[in-house]
């Protein structure tokens, strides 16, 4: 059984502030889901390592947009802006 501490650790890693109620609910649900998906282990016994053949699909490294073409739209997409900056909390004291 996944512990409450493990649930809290996962939530912290995932940057999720959870209520006590959510933690308790997720604890039992995650446990059930992990039990279910754990079945892959039996099938994987006989499986070869996947043979991925990745190919790089690259486009030319050139500027295709006009200067500032999307700047306003992207700045406006942020929850808080100040002038031409996205506003976030200070991280250096």
């Amino acid at each position: 059984m996944i512990s409450k501490e493990e649930v809290e650790k996962l939530a912290e890693l995932a940057r999720l502030a959870l209520t006590e109620e959510e933690k308790a609910k997720f604890q039992s649900e995650i446990d059930a889901i992990l039990g279910f998906v754990g079945k892959v282990k039996e099938a994987a016994e006989a499986a070869p390592r996947p043979q991925y053949a990745p190919t790089n699909v690259l486009r030319e490294d050139i500027v295709v947009h006009k200067m500032g073409e999307y700047a306003e739209a992207l700045l406006n997409a942020s929850p808080e802006r100040e002038g031409d900056f996205v506003k976030v909390k200070r991280i250096l004291e």
Binding site: V7, L10, A11, L13, A14, R15, L16, A17, L18, E22, K25, F26, E29, I30, I33, L34
Partner: peptide, 17 residues
């Protein structure tokens, strides 16, 4: 993330993590 994402999204993020 804690308050604006719904239960299923949070559940999958937790399992994925």
């Amino acid at each position: 993330r804690g308050q604006l994402l719904g239960a299923e999204v949070k559940r999958r993020i937790m399992i994925g993590t």
